[in-house]
Amino acid sequence: MEEIIRVKSISQLHELMGAEKPAHPLISILDMAALDLGKKWVGIKVTSDLYTIGLKDKECGIEYGRNSYDFAEGAMFFTAPNQVVRSDEEQIAGEDCGWMLFFHPDLIRNTPLGKNIEHYHFFSYDVHEALHLSAAEQKTIIECRDLIQSEITQRIDHHSRKVIVSSLELILNFCTRFYERQFNTRSTASNDIMSQFESLLKDYYTSGKFAENGIPSIEYFAGQVHLSQSYLSDLLKKETGYAAKDHINNFIVEKAKTLLLSETDSISEIAYQLGFNYPHYFSRLFKLRTGFSPQEYRLSSNKN
């Protein structure tokens, strides 16, 4: 099995990267231009217990999961604990390659950010779904980063954690805004993905795959359109107001309404046609979406 190096702490990260001892035990910002990692990290897979926020301000190859990406100027990426990354290019000191902010989950534990960190879906985006910043946006992010850097390098007091975490949350909220802008400015590509998704969903049904393979997963559609699950779901929600799972469930309910108008198929048979192994799961979804059980809907429709 291929070796994967695991980084468990900020201090271990600094040691592995040949950086000075960290000023704070739970958060660090590293200037990549100051590091000379040579060839020893090329092709090495690394996972960690840390969150990462990075900004690459020149082309700098990195691989995340099975996807590779050459970062253009002003591109940000994010990783969460337990994700695997790998660099495909040698990092040489003096090259202007951006910065990376690392923080341990203990930093935000029992804070509002700790409770809401899962809502920042871009920590689950693939590298090729990086956030591309304008010059003004990049300036905003760097100003927030500098607030954190200043706080880290000062004497730590009982206000430090609150200030650092608030600044982190500010960065993430700005990135949420900037990603929405990115969805908007790439509306043609977004509409194309929307069309692909709807076509794939219809084809899955007409080919009998609902009955054969069960309800399709978000992972299935994401793989078909070459996006991560989180990015696809966020893109769909931005364009239509519904996440990918909601689109799938809405499609199922609409098909169910048509099938329920038939007198020949039982509720159980319709449930199996729509990918449910257990009819009561189908009935629960249908009532949740329509306010009627399948049988109540069938009877009320027949009366009309």
Score class of each variant (00 low, 15 high):
A130M: 05
H104G: 05
K115L: 15
Y125C: 05
L133M: 07
G61A: 13
L131W: 04
D49F: 03
C97I: 00
N67W: 14
L133C: 11
R86I: 00
H119S: 12
V84T: 09
T79S: 12
D31N: 15
H128M: 09
K39G: 13
D31R: 14
L113V: 01
T52Y: 14
P81W: 01
F103T: 01
R109F: 13
F77K: 08
T52N: 12
E63R: 09
I53A: 06
M100Q: 13
F102Y: 14
Q91E: 02
E143F: 04
Y125W: 13
R109P: 05
V127A: 08
D49N: 15
P81I: 00
S68E: 03
P81R: 01
A33N: 09
G98L: 02
K56A: 13
L35V: 11
P105C: 05
D31T: 03
L30C: 04
E137M: 07
A75W: 04
D96G: 13
L133G: 03
K39D: 14
K58V: 01
V46T: 12
N110D: 15
G38I: 00
Y51A: 02
Y64K: 11
A80T: 01
I141H: 12
A75N: 15
M100L: 05
Q83L: 06
A136L: 05
R86W: 07
G65S: 07
N67Y: 14
K40Y: 09
Y120G: 04
S134K: 11
S48E: 02
C97H: 10
E63P: 00
G38Q: 02
I92T: 10
L55Y: 09
T140I: 10
K58P: 08
D126F: 09
G65P: 06
L133I: 00
L37M: 07
Q91G: 08
I117N: 07
G98Y: 02
D57G: 14
V42Y: 01
A93T: 03
E143L: 04
D57Y: 10
Y64T: 11
L55K: 08
E89G: 09
L107R: 02
T111R: 11
A72Y: 09
K56E: 06
S124F: 09
P81A: 02
R66T: 07
W41I: 00
L107T: 02
G114T: 02
F102A: 02
D49H: 13
V84D: 02
I44A: 10
E89N: 08
V42H: 06
Y64I: 00
L50H: 02
V127L: 14
M76A: 08
M100H: 11
A136G: 13
R66L: 10
Q91Y: 03
D49K: 11
I29V: 14
A136K: 11
I44H: 10
A80M: 03
V42D: 02
K115G: 13
G43D: 04
K115E: 13
D36T: 00
L55F: 10
E95V: 01
L101F: 03
I108C: 06
E118F: 15
G98W: 03
G38S: 07
K45R: 14
I53W: 10
I53Q: 07
L113D: 04
T79H: 07
V84C: 08
D57P: 13
V127I: 15
V127M: 12
T52L: 12
D31F: 04
H119N: 15
